[in-house]
Amino acid sequence: MKALLITTLYSPFQIDIANEFKQEDGVSEYHVAFTVLSSKVRGNHWQVSSSVDGKYIHSIDSDGDCDHIVQWLKRLIEEIKPTHIILGRWRGCVAIEIARYYKDLDVKIGYWTEPPNFLLPNIVQFSLALYSRYLLRGADYYFSIGARCENIYRDILTKKRHVYQLSYGQDLSEFFSIDDTLRNKKLTFLFSGQLIKRHNIHWICDAILKLHLIYPNKFKVIIAAKGPEQHYIDKMIINEPQLGEVVSYDREYEHWSDRIRPFMKSDVLIYPTSHSGWGLVIPEAMAAGMAVLSTRKAEAANYFLRHDVNGRVIEHTKESLHDGMEYCLLNRDDVGRYAKQARIDAKCGTASYVAERLKLLLNKV
């Protein structure tokens, strides 16, 4: 068996999964093809590494030229001769053309995607649902990121028994190696990701301000993110200059492994998102020995987070975020208990764990 994953933006965590494959377990080769090498919203640490093994990892610098990408992929497929093609998305000219061209040939076509964006207007969601039914009607299998995604595509696909939940995975070894005794005595909250609207940065600022007024000098906040919602943080500090001593930044990374720094200094991840197709920062925080505060709008929270066991589930409101952060401030022993269990539970998010499940599913379909 030979498998080829065709995905868009170069993703270091997909490299981690590919690196776990050995010439065994019925999967003789596992290849990954990236069709987009960089993004303006990603930092330097998302760039293609020169150390990537070119034998199984393939990429093209295409500037988005669909026909150019498709022709390159067809040559690559002819060279590899995969038995399974896994598409990282079902929309877009590349995915549609590859699925159309190979659907009647001796290769199994499937998908591995995140759930749709539930923040889109209802009419758009309805249109996409109809479109997906048309495009996916002949899919041989579907690997869904999270339970919500699984439910959606089990309803759509003809071959319902070949819809499986398969999370992302990554090399978490550096996060597991963090010595939590090195952290600050003050409880430190971390937001990691992007400063964008769906992550409700204004809620975070509101909670910081209110907690600072009640518990001055009792906590710190690290922002490991960039984005257009930065103005909320700037305005907060202008209005309350003392918060300049509370809020700090750690967000300039040259390499993927540099992202570990803010996790080394933090106790609680705050993730009040309105939508996240996965949320890599959740298993990263858990592996680092941190508690997690998150809404259920992140698929990784649905997969990993157990309320009052390895973190706290918050409602999708600014009040719930505030209350969750306050609870952690007042109950440090519980934060420590969550962190210990989180490290255990994060093992289900490692690249080796996910690669083993991927091997099992590829042999099954």
Rank of each mutant, 00 (worst) to 15 (best):
S352A: 15
A355D: 13
H322K: 11
A346F: 01
G336T: 04
R357P: 02
V335C: 11
A339C: 12
V335T: 07
V354K: 07
A339K: 10
S352G: 06
Y338T: 08
T350C: 07
C348A: 14
L330M: 09
T350F: 02
R337N: 09
K347P: 02
R337K: 13
D345I: 01
A346N: 06
C348K: 14
D333K: 15
E326V: 00
A339T: 09
Y353E: 15
E326Q: 14
L329H: 05
A355L: 08
K347R: 15
V335F: 03
A346H: 03
D323I: 00
D323G: 02
D334V: 09
V354L: 12
V354S: 14
L329F: 00
Y353G: 06
L329G: 11
G349T: 05
C328M: 05
K347C: 06
K347G: 06
G324R: 07
R332Y: 07
D345C: 03
G324S: 10
T350I: 00
H322A: 00
A346C: 07
D323S: 10
A355E: 13
Y353M: 13
A342Y: 00
S352M: 06
N331C: 05
L330W: 02
A351N: 14
C328I: 06
L329Y: 03
V354E: 14
G336N: 13
D323T: 03
A346Y: 01
K340D: 13
A339H: 06
Y327N: 09
D323V: 00
R343C: 05
M325C: 08
H322M: 00
D333M: 09
T350L: 08
R332T: 08
L330P: 01
C348T: 11
N331I: 00
E356P: 00
T350E: 14
A342C: 06
I344H: 11
E356Q: 15
L330S: 04
D323N: 14
M325D: 11
D323L: 07
A351L: 09
